[in-house]
Simulated assay, not measured.
Amino acid sequence: MKNLILFAFLFSICISNAQEFKLTDTYDVTNQRSSGLEDKDTWLVDVIESNNPERHIATLSIADFGLLDEIRISVLSNPDLEDINEILKVTLEYNACCSSTEEFYYLVSNDNDFIALPSIKNEYAYEPISDIHYIFPNQSFGKEGTILRAALQYTETATIKDIKVLRSIAWNDDDFDTEDAITAINY
């Protein structure tokens, strides 16, 4: 069990580094509260700007709060998307018999507006062999003016073996379809 948790932690660090997202204290999570659903261990938290706590970015629902291991906030600067300054990523990491992550991505415009992308969930029973991420133009495997949602396949040494593009979003404005979270399950 400890090996699985350690591997998941190291693997998530490798993925974060591969995507060039950097941990930040520009944003924070606050106002933890119950969702009001008595039969579920679901809590709500707000994502805010650290220097301006009144600036509310999003409210996240945390299912199984007792299994939540960590919340990480990171940014990708200069993603090479028109009128977008950075990408904000909030990662919720859960650990139990299996580990899982839920990632929330927000495009931060030059006018300091926040545009949410559909969240992504990845579940790992053993060693991760694949998971889903967004790839932005300034990253490895990125495509100019396009946001890619892709399934990444890994070798046993956790290097990228294959990428399958699941969706390609041509970026020219903030008008694209919203949809439910995308989930990758590895068993």
Rank of each mutant, 00 (worst) to 15 (best):
M1E: 10
K2W: 06
I5C: 05
L6G: 07
L6K: 14
F9R: 13
F9W: 14
Q19L: 13
F21Q: 03
K22W: 05
L23A: 14
L23H: 08
T24G: 11
D28Q: 07
V29S: 10
T30G: 08
S34D: 13
S35Y: 03
L37M: 12
K40Q: 12
D41Y: 02
D41L: 03
D41A: 02
V45P: 10
I48F: 05
N52M: 02
P53E: 00
P53K: 02
E54H: 12
A58F: 08
L60C: 04
L60Y: 06
I62D: 02
A63K: 12
G66I: 08
G66Y: 09
I71M: 11
D80L: 15
D83A: 13
E86A: 08
E86I: 00
I87Q: 00
I87L: 02
I87G: 00
E93T: 15
E93K: 15
N95H: 12
N95Q: 13
N95F: 14
S99N: 11
S100Q: 08
T101D: 15
E102C: 07
E103H: 08
F104S: 09
Y105I: 07
S109L: 07
S109Y: 04
N110Y: 06
N112H: 09
L117Y: 06
L117S: 03
L117C: 08
P118F: 08
K121G: 01
A125G: 03
P128L: 03
S130C: 09
I132C: 11
I132P: 03
N138V: 07
S140G: 05
G145R: 05
A151L: 13
T159C: 09
I160G: 01
V165I: 15
R167V: 03
W171N: 08
D174Q: 11
I185S: 11
